[in-house]
């Protein structure tokens, strides 16, 4: 028997290494469940209702959470802010309390503002899972990324991972850095100076502005999308110039001394941060990441639900 040290999953920051390993070990078993020959679901959460509340667009994460919930036999309600009373001026707490009044046990929330999940966890009774809050954290993405590295190499400790792209606006980058460091990996960030946060050194990561140097150093490269929707000013002259300096193509990949692993949290902008022949190459584990996402989310929901009583 084992238990997470937290009642909510608000970010990687609140997790211990033991928590992460426990999530991984549980996710291993859920991967078995997803590959069962006939029935790919289990009844564990059959008496639970989970609300997926998305105040921001999402395809992969929402689908992945919904699938994870359904594979655990939970009842699921979906809520998208664009089609709700939020546009009529309702506050976040009111919205969520109204949903909870309909007897919902757990809330999976994505919100454009950093700290929204933490705020909610202090004001409502249900357990909260953060599915991305602004440019702050995206814990399940970091967990599934680290889980995919562990699956590929057997262990995360000692591996060298470079995160390339828009570090400044990326919640995936912050959660990944925290998660990988917690598990003993070496982390480097790479991108234009304007897209690297000022206080990045406080996180104990290396910084490199030359893509080829960064790729020669690493075992794994996690290529991030440029978050144009969060950029209110111009951070670089043009997308074309960004691609020339920080886009990963087959030519660069083949010129490296060793065979590195390529990851991407999606959605991919093909031809910008990564070319199609790299995204679809055998060095890419992008689709494994998506598959692992369901198992990781099942593990998180299962472990959180198990401790409610």
């Amino acid at each position: 028997m084992a238990e997470l040290s937290t009642r909510h999953l608000l970010g990687i920051k609140g997790l211990t290494e033991q928590d992460i390993q426990l999530i991984f070990e549980t996710a291993d078993r859920f991967k078995d469940v997803l590959n069962q020959p006939q029935i790919r679901k289990v009844p564990s959460l059959r008496d639970l209702t989970i609300a997926n509340i998305f105040f921001e667009n999402s395809t992969r994460t929402r689908l992945s959470f919904e699938l994870a919930e359904k594979r655990l036999s939970a009842d699921v309600v979906n809520f998208a802010a664009s089609s709700s009373s939020v546009s009529k001026g309702e506050t976040l707490i009111d919205t969520v309390n109204n949903i909870l009044a309909m007897k919902v046990d757990m809330v999976v929330m994505r919100h454009p503002y950093a700290g929204a999940a933490t705020f909610l966890s202090k004001h409502v009774k249900a357990q909260i899972v953060n599915a991305g809050d602004g440019a702050h954290e995206h814990p399940t993405q970091a967990l599934l990324d680290a889980f995919s590295i562990r699956e590929k190499y057997g262990d995360v400790a000692g591996k060298k991972v470079v995160i390339v792209g828009d570090i400044l606006h990326s919640r995936v980058a912050l959660s990944n850095i925290l998660c990988l460091k917690q598990l003993g990996a070496e982390v480097m960030v790479c991108g234009p100076t304007t897209l690297i946060p000022k206080y990045i050194n406080a996180l104990g990561v290396k910084v490199e502005h030359n893509l080829v140097k960064a790729l020669n150093w690493c075992d794994v490269a996690n290529m991030l999308r440029i978050q144009l929707e969060r950029q209110d000013i111009k951070y670089f002259p043009s997308i074309r110039e960004y691609t020339m300096l920080y886009g990963l193509n087959k030519e660069i990949l083949n010129s490296l001394d060793k065979e590195i692993t390529v990851m991407h949290p999606g959605p991919i902008n093909r031809g910008v941060e990564i070319t199609s022949d790299v995204a679809d190459s055998k060095q890419s584990i992008i689709l494994d990441q998506v598959e692992n996402g369901v198992a990781i989310r099942m593990a998180v929901l299962y472990l959180l639900a198990g401790q409610t009583q």
Binding site: M1, A2, E3, L303, Q307, Q309
Partner: peptide
């Protein structure tokens, strides 16, 4: 499940 202290790890 949810009737004991913590979930069992399979």
């Amino acid at each position: 499940f949810r009737r004991r202290g913590a979930p069992l790890i399979p």
